[in-house]
């Protein structure tokens, strides 16, 4: 077809792309879209495609190397919820991890931030020290704490014995009653620095005049905290809770290095159980099914929280 005839048919504003005018129009009006294409391509290749592939894989029984993948439908999911107590235990552990992170890190973080801001002269140094653990590679942290928890050489038990609390000394990671608590201790040690830092950043953005007028109005330090600081931090706290929940669902390295989910499967979280199923037992289909549930749970929870945040915060 000759170009001229094409152009004749092509009335202004129609949707054929390759005439000069509409191409220009198209480029103009879609510049944002076109410029974001490379990024979009990456998202599709590296996020959407693997997600679809994971769901697909979760319907099969396979061992990574066999040429036959056996379609088993939802068998992997049935097994997970009806026949796999460790999976359920790992879900409980994720919930515990998220809950204790929020309950412990946020109050302590806020308290430390208040201290840092109040005593400005040494506050900066104090803040740097609190933040330090967050900067260390988590595998290094895990190894350090594993040795600290060691019943024979570990500094924690040595310390307890030295101050006369020897009856508290125990193999922290080698006891099914304390292993999870020991891991929580390390987690909090790492992340309190982050919570503190985010709180400091938020508090610094509050105009000081608010606090000044509060003081002129005669509010005590505690009243000031309760009536002014805390309400202003509400948004941040919601964000921190979201971070804790999302973080609990993707938590892996620390637990894997410290206990590998043991002793006796008591410290598994969903990701470590996924890893064990997929790569230790060579059941990628089952691992993928666990991955799908992690995706769904975290997606739903984060959506709920975002919705909750919006409605609360725009009020």
């Amino acid at each position: 077809m000759k170009r001229s005839s094409l152009r004749e048919k092509n009335k202004p504003g129609s949707t054929i792309f390759f005439s000069h005018k509409s191409l220009k129009n198209f480029l103009d009006s879609n510049a944002g879209l076109i410029l974001s294409l490379p990024a979009l391509a990456f998202v599709i290749i590296f996020i959407f495609y693997p997600l679809v592939q994971m769901f697909y894989l979760s319907l099969f029984r396979w061992n990574f190397v066999s040429p036959n993948m056996i379609f088993v439908g939802i068998e992997n999911y049935v097994r997970m919820f009806l026949n796999d107590p460790v999976y359920l235990r790992s879900l409980v552990n994720v919930i515990l991890l998220a809950a204790q992170s929020s309950a412990i890190q946020i109050p302590i973080g806020v308290a430390l931030a208040t201290i840092v801001l109040r005593y400005r002269r040494i506050g900066g140094l104090f803040w740097a020290i609190i933040f330090l653990p967050y900067v260390i590679s988590s595998v290094a942290v895990s190894l350090i704490w594993t040795w600290m928890y060691n019943p024979y050489f570990g500094s924690i038990n040595v310390f307890l014995r030295t101050i006369g609390l020897g009856f508290l000394a125990r193999p922290w990671l080698g006891d099914i009653n304390t292993a999870l608590i020991a891991i929580f201790g390390t987690v909090n040690w790492i992340y309190i620095g982050l919570t503190t830092t985010m709180t400091i950043a938020t508090l610094k953005s509050i105009p000081p005049s608010i606090f000044e007028s509060a003081r002129i109005d005669g509010l005590s330090g505690f009243q000031e905290f309760r009536k002014i600081t805390l309400p202003l931090l509400k948004e941040l706290i919601v964000v921190l809770v979201i971070i804790d929940i999302a973080g609990a669902f993707k938590f892996f390295d620390l637990i894997w290095v410290m206990t590998q989910g043991g002793p006796s499967d008591s410290t598994h979280v969903t990701t470590t159980w996924l890893y064990r199923a997929a790569f230790r037992s060579s059941e990628p289909g089952y691992g993928a099914a666990i991955g799908v549930t992690i995706f769904i749970f975290s997606f739903v929870i984060v959506q709920l929280l975002i919705k909750f945040t919006r409605s609360r915060l725009t009020r």
């Binding site: 594993t146 060691n150 125990r170 193999p171 080698g174 206990t259």
Partner: peptide, 21 residues
């Protein structure tokens, strides 16, 4: 076995043996 052996790594066991504990 040593205290807490179910949570001990290969390295920790090695350490106990090599150092004469």
């Amino acid at each position: 076995f040593q205290e807490g052996f179910i949570g001990a790594s290969y390295d920790e066991a090695q350490n106990l043996f090599f150092t004469g504990k």
